[in-house]
Amino acid sequence: MHADRTNRAVLILAALVLMAGGAGVVVLSTGLFATGATGRAISDNVVSGAYVEHGAWLWPVTVAVALVVLLLAVRWLIAILFSTDRVSDHRVPGDGSHGTTTLAAGALAAALGAEIEGYEGVQSTGVRLIGDASAPRLVLDVTLAADADPDAVRNRIETDAVAHARTAMDQPELPAVIDLSVGRRSSDRVH
Rank of each mutant, 00 (worst) to 15 (best):
A135H: 05
S97K: 14
V92R: 13
I157Y: 13
L129T: 02
D89F: 11
Q171T: 11
A168D: 02
D147W: 11
G113F: 09
T84S: 11
E115T: 12
G131P: 08
L108Q: 00
A165R: 10
D160T: 05
Q171D: 07
L103K: 04
L129P: 00
D132T: 14
V122A: 13
S83Y: 08
D151M: 07
A163W: 00
F82Y: 15
G126T: 01
I157C: 10
V122S: 07
V153N: 15
A145G: 13
G94E: 07
D151A: 11
A114V: 00
L129I: 01
T100V: 15
G118S: 09
A148R: 08
S97Y: 01
G121I: 11
G94D: 07
R137T: 10
R86N: 06
E117P: 04
L140C: 08
G96Y: 04
D170I: 01
P172A: 05
V87G: 01
R91D: 01
S88F: 12
R128K: 14
R86K: 08
P136M: 02
I130L: 10
T159V: 14
S88D: 14
G99C: 12
N155K: 12
T100K: 13
V139D: 14
R154F: 08
H164I: 00
A145N: 15
T84E: 05
V139H: 13
D95G: 01
V153G: 11
R166I: 06
D85N: 12
H90K: 09
V87P: 05
A114L: 02
L108N: 02
G96E: 00
V127R: 03
I157M: 09
L140Q: 03
P93G: 02
A152I: 04
A109L: 13
A114G: 07
E117G: 08
A145I: 03
T167V: 09
D149R: 07
Y119D: 11
G118T: 05
D141E: 09
I116N: 01
T167E: 05
P150T: 05
A111I: 02
L138H: 05
G113V: 11
A161R: 10
